[in-house]
Amino acid sequence: MSRLGGRTILVVGGGSGIGRAAALAYLDAGARVTVVEHSSELAATLRADTSGRLEIVEGDGAEPDVLAAAVAAARGATGLDHLTCCVGVFDGYASIRELDADRLLATAERAWRLNVLSALLAAHAAWPALREARGSLTLTLSESAFRPAGGGVLYGSAKWALRGVVDHLAADLAPDVRVNGVAPGGTTATRFAGDGVDRDERIAAATLLCTTPTPADHAAAYLHLADPATSRVVTGQVLLTNGGSR
């Protein structure tokens, strides 16, 4: 049997980027995978690229009704072994010096809802099924959860909050459900930084390994945490996958 053969996994926010890479890694490892994706276009692309081998629930990954439907679809008749949360939004390096009060409030509420509340709602929807399976949960943080890099204060503070969620949720759901996180560093993209320096080159230059991670580079950490054979006694931990940012 393949590494995750026979296991069922739900990925919330799995239509693009790191979430998509994790979902594909789970699928390739033999798991039955269900993905929640807000964008119909991204959902259609993922469906086509996987020849329909995974199930997709289209909707907002921060809406309780969508998450309940996704858990039911993923659980099926065999149960739910693992939940991965990848919903998130970037703040564009927003500074409170440059935002008026209304924009600050709106941006902060959106950052909290999509980066933090979405994970809490997903965990709330899935924990009974995960408890029954003695399963696991992986949240997606960022190196911004450890230092002021890769975003502004709103994005960074939301990711810092997720560090607390990992710690507290690991205690709250113990001993039945393992809770961990992955904190990716800057990841390859095609856009350019405002100063004209290629973003990928800038990221690579700031890492000890002199490399820019791709979404697929982070997937191994998700596989490790979802696999009870390799992480049976791992909970309350965050794996940094940032190339040794400095």
Rank of each mutant, 00 (worst) to 15 (best):
L4W: 01
A183Q: 04
V179D: 00
T138I: 08
A119T: 02
G151E: 06
V197F: 04
A106I: 02
A171E: 11
A161S: 14
R199S: 07
A149L: 12
P64W: 03
A108Y: 05
G19V: 07
G15K: 03
T34A: 07
F90L: 10
A189F: 02
H82E: 09
L105I: 14
T140C: 11
A219P: 09
S144E: 10
A72G: 15
G30P: 12
D100T: 15
T190I: 11
A108F: 14
A221L: 10
N180W: 03
T235E: 06
V177H: 03
D49H: 05
A221K: 08
T140F: 07
R232S: 15
R97L: 11
T8R: 14
E55D: 14
L120P: 00
L169H: 00
E55M: 07
E143A: 09
Y155R: 04
A183I: 11
L105T: 15
P184W: 06
Y93R: 13
R113P: 01
G151T: 15
R47V: 01
C210P: 00
L141C: 12
G181R: 07
T214H: 08
D227V: 06
G13E: 00
K159F: 05
G150F: 05
A25I: 09
E41Y: 04
A106Q: 13
A22V: 04
A119L: 02
G150K: 04
D28V: 08
A31S: 09
I18Q: 03
G135F: 05
L42A: 13
I203A: 06
V12F: 00
G19D: 07
L114D: 01
T34V: 14
G6P: 08
A126E: 01
S118C: 07
L67H: 06
H38V: 12
A68G: 14
T230R: 12
V197K: 11
R191I: 08
G186H: 05
L104C: 13
P215S: 06
G14T: 04
D172P: 02
T8G: 07
F90D: 06
A126F: 01
P175L: 10
T8K: 13
P128H: 09
T34S: 10
E63H: 06
A174S: 13
G79F: 07
T34M: 03
L99Y: 04
R3S: 11
G194I: 09
A149V: 15
V233S: 13
D195C: 07
V11Q: 00
R32S: 13
T8W: 04
P213V: 12
F192M: 11
T107F: 01
V153T: 15
T188N: 02
A23W: 04
T45I: 12
R199W: 10
G76P: 08
T138L: 04
E41A: 13
V66G: 03
A73G: 04
L240I: 09
R53I: 05
